[in-house]
Design a protein around this nucleic acid. Structure first.
Lengths: 209, 209
DNA sequence: TTTAGTCATTGAACGACGTACAATAATTAA
DNA sequence: TTAATTATTGTACGTCGTTCAATGACTAAA
């Protein structure tokens, strides 16, 4: 009777074994080098067994990517924002996000570029109402709202602005990761100019109203 | 004696045959589905022959990607800019770039994400002096300079601003392509808001000076 | 025109891949 | 102890990129 519980646990353990082997391989060799056969060798089972626990390679990849994405989200949200005025908060949030993303470039790119339904459920941010669903976007949205409290900006414009800031930040992160030979100095310059200048201009442009 | 010339031409023709077969496959099935064996079948040769004309699959891929990129560049630069004031030009340039990129999403993504030296030579834009070398960036740079002619903005800031606009635009394009299920209406909204509002804010923020 | 040499092209093979499936081994419930 | 269920494996298929020795075709020299 209690057997069932144990079985469940064992299945979970086996899945974990497979996933962590997959993560190891990805960490040491990169995403494209992951193969079912390598996982099997690493956990000392035959390749076939993996199909008892996962539908196919893609499912494994999706789980790994999803976990990477959660790691990123929790890293970002665990960072304290010390700014008192919304402008300062905005700058800090942007910098935090960029810093975390650049600390795990492989995982970040994989998560963001993955077009599977599962991945898109987490990463999509361009639909109407995204600022209510996505944590990063909603933090941005609140920040902007605070900034606009004396002005007259409609909600739709705030949402669009938040989306554009997110999308721009992603562009910067992508390019920094792709152009892998940027010097530390140049990289810091770019990030600092972007977060201290560009983001604030986007948020608080002189063309509002 | 003239044989050599003919040989050269034949080699070039064979390369072209291989490349165009590769392009066809990529166009109809996507980049990841391209295989040496498929190319061979398409041109009715054995797979081995391909290695007489190219080092490996990657070389073929690089050439195709490079051509795709050139296609994009020439499409953008052939578009007339009708705006009289630099602000209008800026908006139009941005819209043109986005439109062209979205008209060839596969090729555009492949070119931009390719980390090979060859590709980066074309796509990198975050180094110091990029606004002098890269056509898209330099057009932007000129535009910004015109906008700032009465203000006092140093060259470095102009370059950084141009780079940030490019990078942001890429972010928007990437996300629109990745989130493939965005409705036409929503997509047009985003592009219009970005190019008419956000880009101008980035260029002409109230925080200048 | 024959010969020797160069170059184009092929077929077969290797090792790797994802995956399906029937056969076997282990475990559980009766 | 038996029957049923479940875990695990071996084998096989079709795919892939790539190498290499063997062939075929063409070219230059005799």
């Amino acid at each position: 009777m209690t057997t069932e519980k144990r079985r469940e646990r064992e299945v979970e353990e086996m899945k974990e074994l497979i996933l962590s082997a997959a993560s190891d391989i990805i960490a040491s060799e990169g995403f494209d080098k992951l193969s079912i056969r390598k996982i099997a060798k690493k956990i000392e089972y035959s390749p076939s067994i993996i199909y008892h626990y996962f539908d196919d390679k893609e499912e494994i990849l999706n789980v790994v990517i999803q976990r990477g994405y959660k790691k990123i989200v929790s890293a970002v949200s665990s960072m304290k924002i010390e700014g008192s005025v919304p402008e300062e908060k905005l700058v800090q949030m942007t910098q935090n996000y960029i810093k975390v993303a650049l600390s795990m470039p492989e995982e970040f790119m994989a998560a963001q570029l993955n077009q599977s339904k599962v991945a898109l459920k987490h990463t999509s941010s361009l639909f109407k109402g995204a600022s209510k669903e996505k944590p990063a976007l909603s933090a941005l949205y609140q920040c902007l709202k605070e900034m606009y409290k004396d002005k007259d900006v409609d909600e739709n414009t705030i949402e669009l602005t938040a989306q554009m800031i997110v999308v721009s930040t992603l562009g910067l992160i992508f390019k920094i990761i792709i152009e892998k030979d940027i010097s530390d100095e140049q990289r810091d310059n770019l990030i600092s100019f972007y977060s201290n200048e560009i983001v604030l201009r986007m948020a608080n442009g002189n063309r509002l109203n």
